[in-house]
């Protein structure tokens, strides 16, 4: 897959008072992710070409992808495909890249979500509501040892837009 064909459609940056190693660990381990990502468990084979899976709190496989760039603790790129029937066929693969840089006493974490086609704001609204909460939770967890419980309402705009495209949603 040629990553250059994937254009960033959503990009977020957050500063975290931590180390690149800890941020990397928090992004790639289930033990951490359950605390800041609404109970979702990130499981990654730590190598290029390894699998990247996210399990929902009920144990079902929510996301399945592959590791495309692996440069700990600086850069990680994975495919981030939600396991809903027809979703990947209709929207194409979603690519997520984390860039981690030292910035003085803090770490600058930049997340970009990339696609190989234009997508509507309704489709992108899912990530645009979810990511700020996930990243804030990650920051709190690393800085204070505790992530606040953030109440997330269902991504109504996204679900409606998917339904309109004929994609079955849970």
């Amino acid at each position: 897959m040629n990553l250059d064909q994937f254009k960033p459609l959503t990009v977020y940056t957050i500063y975290i008072a931590s180390t690149p190693e800890k941020v990397w660990e928090a992004l790639t381990s289930a033990e951490f992710s359950r605390k800041y990502f609404s109970g979702f468990a990130v499981e990654m084979e730590p190598k290029l070409g390894g699998s990247f899976v996210v399990h929902a709190p009920d144990g079902s496989e929510h996301i399945r992808g592959e590791v495309f760039e692996y440069d700990p603790p600086r850069r990680l790129t994975v495919s981030w495909n939600v396991n809903w029937p027809d979703l990947v066929e209709k929207l194409g693969t979603t690519i997520v890249t984390y860039e981690i840089e030292q910035a003085g006493e803090a770490v600058r974490l930049t997340l970009s979500q990339r696609h190989d086609r234009e997508l509507s704001d309704d489709i992108l609204s899912g990530g645009r509501t979810g990511w700020p909460a996930i990243l804030s939770g990650l920051k709190s967890l690393l800085e204070t040892g505790k992530a606040p419980h953030i109440e997330m309402s269902p991504p109504v705009r996204l679900l409606e837009a998917l339904k309109a495209m004929g994609i079955k949603v849970p």
Binding site: P8, T10, V11, Y12, T13, T110, R128, P132, A133, S136
Partner: peptide, 21 residues
């Protein structure tokens, strides 16, 4: 805002994280 290089272009993105905080 956050900037990212994509090919030869420098692209600008709205970063709502501080407003969220």
């Amino acid at each position: 805002i956050t900037t990212i290089r994509h090919g030869r272009e420098k692209l600008h993105y709205l970063n709502p994280v501080p407003i969220h905080q």
